[in-house]
């Protein structure tokens, strides 16, 4: 049986996709820009950063494009003025949440958060900073986690659990006190589960996870080909 092809409109343009595809997939295939931070091709979708919210005709609520499946006849709006305002505000909330100092960050110039801020035209943060007191864990021989730069997208948690299978990372506490944690709040270097594969470092959209010895703007994240890794894993090869 072949997968049915569905037709829908995105920002007024007629496009088509396979049943079971998300709005985000179809939008990207057709060249529409929908910002994302928690979503990463090859990992399960968390639907948590709320940047990819889109409008769907006939529904008052907004829908996250990364998990909403396309439907026949759907009319999607990806970039109304209202959506842009919300997206800017969400980015600004992330900047206000922790201590993001781009000027001294290892990924300055190639950070997803920084880039999105620029793309969305954010030139200042309207919300007051919360300035939490957060640790930097440099106990691992090769990597560092700086919680000041973490946006809790949980890509590291998912890649470690779903692709590497180590599940070294999870989230501790809740709400605004949430924090990425290794094992039993163990210093990363003492973790008994970490394989040192470094996948978490390379999926991290900001400078929260980086390689030791990298100075300001020197840390480049490598694309890992996660969909490929996932396919191999699923096949059990």
């Amino acid at each position: 049986m072949t997968t049915p092809i569905l037709t829908l409109t995105i920002d007024g343009k007629e496009v088509s996709g396979l049943a079971g595809e998300t709005i985000l997939q179809v939008a990207r295939e057709n060249g529409f820009f929908i910002p994302t931070l928690c979503w990463l091709d090859g990992l399960t979708s968390a639907g948590s950063c709320r940047l990819c919210m889109v409008e769907i005709k006939g529904s008052a609520a907004l829908h996250p494009a990364c998990i909403t499946l396309i439907q026949e006849g759907m009319a999607v709006t990806t970039s109304s003025e209202r959506l842009l305002r919300y997206r800017r505000a969400i980015i600004e909330l992330l900047f206000s949440e922790r201590n993001h100092v781009c000027a001294v960050c290892v990924v300055n110039g190639h950070c997803e958060l920084q880039t999105l801020a620029q793309q969305l035209g954010i030139d200042h943060i309207s919300f007051p900073g919360l300035y939490p007191d957060l640790p930097v864990d440099a106990s691992h021989p090769r990597f560092v986690i700086d919680h000041n730069r973490c946006i809790l997208c949980t890509r590291c948690v998912r890649v470690c659990g779903e692709i590497e299978g180590a599940h070294t990372w999870d989230v501790k506490n809740r709400g605004v006190r949430s924090q990425i944690v290794a094992d039993f709040d163990t210093p990363w270097g003492d973790s008994t589960t970490c394989t040192g594969c470094g996948k978490c470092v390379h999926v991290c959209p900001t400078g929260a996870l980086f390689e030791k010895g990298k100075s300001v703007a020197e840390m480049f994240k490598k694309p890992l080909g996660l969909p490929y890794l996932k396919a191999i894993r699923d096949l059990g090869v």
Binding site: T168, W169, D170, K172, N173, V181, D183, F184, T193
Partner: peptide, 12 residues
């Protein structure tokens, strides 16, 4: 269960 998940639940 991975230790990190246990810790995550214990602190949630």
């Amino acid at each position: 269960i991975p230790p990190a998940r246990v810790f995550g639940v214990a602190t949630f």
